[in-house]
Design a binder for these strands. Structure first.
Lengths: 219, 219
DNA sequence: CAGCTCATGTTAATGGCTTTTACATTAGCC
DNA sequence: GGCTAATGTAAAAGCCATTAACATGAGCTG
């Protein structure tokens, strides 16, 4: 017996507790995040998360329908953080949209690199988007930050040659996501690059904007 | 007893066989592909592939060290097919590099859409690239097609303003991969788009090339 | 504070999967 | 024909997901 703690938790190691955990849902989310970070979304198991939280293997079922629902909740939380991070980087285009867009791109890659567990839960775990409207909405809100950025960038262009902002947002998103997915993590599982992913993305966006007719300052 | 066939195989349903299968490795690869297509790389199980091939659950271990190695072999084969498909579409830039590049992009997306099992094994299954030099090489060969295309495109530009071809190849790859990953499959698991993924990619590449200073014909 | 009730945990069990070990069969080769 | 290595099978251990029946105690109600 003794669902003894593992060596280390996101929380302290051995806080004793009574019959009830008190904050199991949160503890499971944290354990899942840690385990996904260590072994990928596939390697993560419900039972181990329970062990990690110091409860029996059946306890998690009181908080999540099944393993997939826990995974979906991790992804949901990931999208929320992602939105926050992106919004902070974009900062409404201050002081200048182009500089802000550059920050936005870097923030995108940094998130993928520093939060690989969230990132893979969000984009690579194969969670059916249809299964949870909340998940889809959270993703949409994160994308809305990119959309807002595209809008402000496009607004700087003369109306006659202004491109569709949705298209611009999708292009920037796709390029960022492509770079993050293919090269974004120092991971042995990924390819490495003869340059920093950040540089690659920055250059790509600059070329793209130039192609739109956006007058970028020399440099 | 009776590792009876499932309803349907890639092969005929009930060809009887003796003690030895005769072509188990191939059958397992096919079964894996089919199962991944149905339930994603995570849902696929070694045991079910064995059942599908009509052998005992231990038989596959004569051909693959473990489940992951089978997955890696699927990915390997996927990269080989991918290279073939891309090379055929590019056709060495004939009759004209820009048109060929457009075909290349469409072929990329078509592969992701029509061979989702291969595509996810290749890019989303979390196979450690380091584990298999062959796998990495196969991926590199597929990428080489894109690289060759970038080269020919760049060669059309005046040397003075010619961009680094590796960078161009990486941008095109990333944009293609980003679009394929995010929107590439009619999948309920993915987001849908107000336009065809092909159009999005084509437009993105055109804008990008214009940004490079590549003179695209009007249109 | 007593008692009730419901949320939250535990136990125990079922069934699947992965992987290993010991054994069986047979294809290919001399 | 007979040997050997390759290829399958059987059986078993250990883990996981999931469920049903039961236990605990937190929080409300009076």
């Amino acid at each position: 017996m003794s669902w003894s703690k593992h060596g280390r938790g996101a929380e302290g190691p051995g806080e004793p507790r009574g019959y009830h955990h008190g904050n199991l849902k949160e503890a499971l989310l944290r354990a899942a995040l840690e385990l996904i970070a260590q072994k990928g979304p596939a390697g993560f198991t419900f039972a181990e998360a329970a062990r990690w939280a110091g409860v029996s293997p059946a306890a998690p079922y009181r908080h999540f329908r099944d393993r997939d629902e826990l995974l979906a909740n991790v992804a949901l939380r990931g999208f929320e953080r992602f939105e926050t991070v992106l919004a902070r980087a974009w900062d409404d285009g201050r002081p200048e949209p182009l500089a802000a867009l550059d920050r936005l791109g870097k923030a995108y890659l940094e998130f993928a690199r520093t939060e690989p567990a969230y990132y893979s839960a969000m984009f690579e775990a194969g969670i059916p988007l249809s299964a949870s409207p909340e998940l889809r909405d959270a993703g949409d809100r994160a994308f809305a930050v990119l959309r807002g950025a595209a809008e402000k960038i496009c607004a700087q262009m003369p109306p006659a040659k202004r491109p569709p902002t949705l298209m611009v947002a999708l292009h920037i998103w796709s390029l960022s996501h492509g770079i993050a997915s293919l090269f974004g993590r120092g991971d042995a599982a990924r390819r490495t690059l003869p340059m920093a992913a950040e540089e690659l993305l920055e250059a790509g966006i600059l070329v793209y904007l130039r192609g739109l007719g956006f007058a970028t300052k020399p440099g």
